[in-house]
Write a protein that binds this DNA or RNA. Structure first.
Length: 153
DNA sequence: GCCAACGTTGGC
DNA sequence: GCCAACGTTGGC
């Protein structure tokens, strides 16, 4: 079992939006090769933090579970889609997505400021200067620590 | 709105 | 293959 982190701007898609769906959702629209490769490395049962970015209080707000392993992200083929990529074809869709299911929403989100203040987390890629990847790996130690900060047993 | 950092593009 | 220009991300 491995651990990950997904970033999302809550104004576009928040954890509550996922909760409201009441079913797993494809994590589509990722158009960065490194982020795509992380998704391709995900296995069913893996857990991931849901992180809210570009908002008043950036924070880890909860958890999701990978419930379907990577498959082609066909939104890249749709010219009307915001994430359309003219290089993608049916034979070579280029981009991948996974399905995620809601698992938990923290009563107390772990803010970016709290993450930065925790010495054990200084190595997290999320906290690295200039980091822009929307999908990131998380170590089991980091997973445990952040869950602790959220007050989750 | 500003700015730093990064990925991508395109001219050469 | 180099590198400048540009667009995007994301914190503040």
């Amino acid at each position: 079992m491995r651990y990950w982190l997904f970033k999302s701007e809550p104004a576009s898609f928040s954890l509550d939006d996922l909760v409201k769906k009441g079913r797993p959702e494809p994590w589509d629209g990722v158009r960065n090769f490194q982020a795509r490769n992380f998704m391709r490395a995900m296995a069913c049962g893996d857990r991931a933090f849901f992180y809210h970015s570009s908002c008043p209080v950036p924070a880890v707000v909860g958890e999701v579970e990978i419930v379907r392993e990577h498959y082609p992200d066909l939104t890249a083929l749709d010219p009307d889609n915001h994430h359309y990529d003219s290089r993608a074809t049916a034979d070579n869709p280029i981009w991948s997505m996974v399905d995620v299911a809601f698992r938990e929403r923290y009563k107390k989100p772990v803010t970016l400021a709290e993450l930065k203040a925790c010495p054990a987390l200084v190595g997290m890629p999320l906290l690295a200067r200039g980091n822009r990847l929307s999908v990131l790996p998380v170590t089991s130690d980091e997973w445990r620590i952040i869950r602790g900060l959220a007050g989750t047993p």
